[in-house]
């Protein structure tokens, strides 16, 4: 009896939803955005901001489902198995789509074969920083210090196998020194270690450290193509054009999702990301809103793989 009632209710809801939508690219709601990380983290916050906007433009309930675990790989594998009807989107980043395929010999998903891009939603920069008491004042000073003190040239990143980890290797390469890497359990502990002068150099996402500059942490340079803050140069400006690269969050869907549905989702996501209050909130977090077509998103995936895969391979880093 009860099950029957639920069935009727669901059927009614489906009918109601369908009635309000053009028939061609209908998505049977509710739509869920799978975030493969715990609730409350940076990427979760962005997903929730966008879910809130998509609700209005798609006329559907949009929920954020957190499936944390194994650095995001559990949630990614889970999303891969969901129906490819546009009702499931997954939030991904370079760790899952660029690094993981190289460092895991047995990865349960293939970024290209199992998923199709929808839109890039957010771009964040990396930065190199030092404790406020450090004698290092700028990028030139950093490289010189590393050359002079190869035995103390340690750097910290928020996680082993994260892009900042490999970014630090690039800096060491520029100085011709193999720096020792120490991973901290996330950005918080790394910030604490930098403020307390427990580690000489830190490499992390810019938005994780910008609030502490310049009193508690000295950010030497950011790694994007343009400055994030007037007083902090880019590595390129400081004379190291090869030290460049950004991180991102993107939305993808299971690979077999029909193209018209993807385009519809992409348009809605772009509209959500570019709405003024979302732009302001994403900028307030220290990163930049994106909003791209599926094709542009795909091109970014490809370009970043070309940039990072040789560096990751050269580092010899293997997770399993």
């Amino acid at each position: 009896m009860r099950r029957c009632c639920v069935g009727v209710l669901v059927a009614m809801m489906v009918v109601l939803c369908a009635a309000g939508m053009p028939a061609a690219q209908e998505i049977k709601g509710p739509i869920k955005i799978v975030v493969p990380y715990p609730a409350g983290g940076g990427s979760d916050v962005v997903a929730r901001l966008i879910a809130d906007k998509l609700k209005d433009s798609l006329g559907q309930t949009v929920i954020v489902e957190n499936k944390p675990g194994a650095g995001g790989r559990i949630g990614t594998e889970y999303a891969k198995g969901q129906p490819a009807d546009g009702a499931t989107m997954l939030l991904v980043n370079p760790a899952l789509f660029v690094v993981a395929p190289v460092v895991f010999s047995k990865l349960a998903y293939d970024p290209d074969a199992d998923f199709a891009p929808v839109s890039l939603i957010q771009i964040y920069q990396f930065c190199a920083s030092v404790p406020p008491v450090s004698p290092i004042k700028d990028v030139k000073g950093l490289i010189e210090w590393i050359k002079k003190n190869p035995n103390q040239a340690n750097y910290g990143s928020p996680a082993a196998g994260s892009l900042p980890h490999f970014f630090g290797l690039m800096i060491g390469k520029a100085a011709g020194v193999e720096m020792v890497h120490s991973s901290y359990n996330g950005s918080g502990p790394l910030v604490t270690a930098l403020i307390g002068n427990q580690i000489p150099i830190g490499v992390d996402a810019y938005d994780a450290q910008s609030a502490y500059h310049p009193d508690k942490i000295r950010i030497l340079a950011t790694a994007g193509t343009s400055r994030k803050q007037p007083d902090i140069p880019t590595f390129k400006e400081a004379g190291f054009p090869e030290i460049e690269g950004v991180g991102w969050n993107a939305l993808v869907v299971p690979a077999k999702t029909p193209k018209p549905v993807i385009d519809k989702l992409s348009a809605a996501v772009v509209k959500a990301v570019r709405s003024p209050d979302v732009v302001e909130k994403i900028k307030g977090m220290g990163s930049d809103p994106a909003g791209t077509t599926p094709e542009e998103c795909s091109a970014v995936f490809k370009k970043d793989r070309e940039r990072w895969v040789p560096i990751i391979k050269a580092s010899g880093f293997k997770a399993e």
């Binding site: 715990p38 409350g40 983290g41 918080g188 609030a211 508690k216 307030g284």
Partner: peptide
């Protein structure tokens, strides 16, 4: 300092960010 010492407070930090407080 804005450094969350555990998961719950990391979520609080997230809540603050949503409200535009870094």
């Amino acid at each position: 300092l804005g450094i969350p010492p555990n998961v719950i407070l990391a979520m609080m930090a997230g809540a603050m960010m949503i409200h535009g407080i870094q």
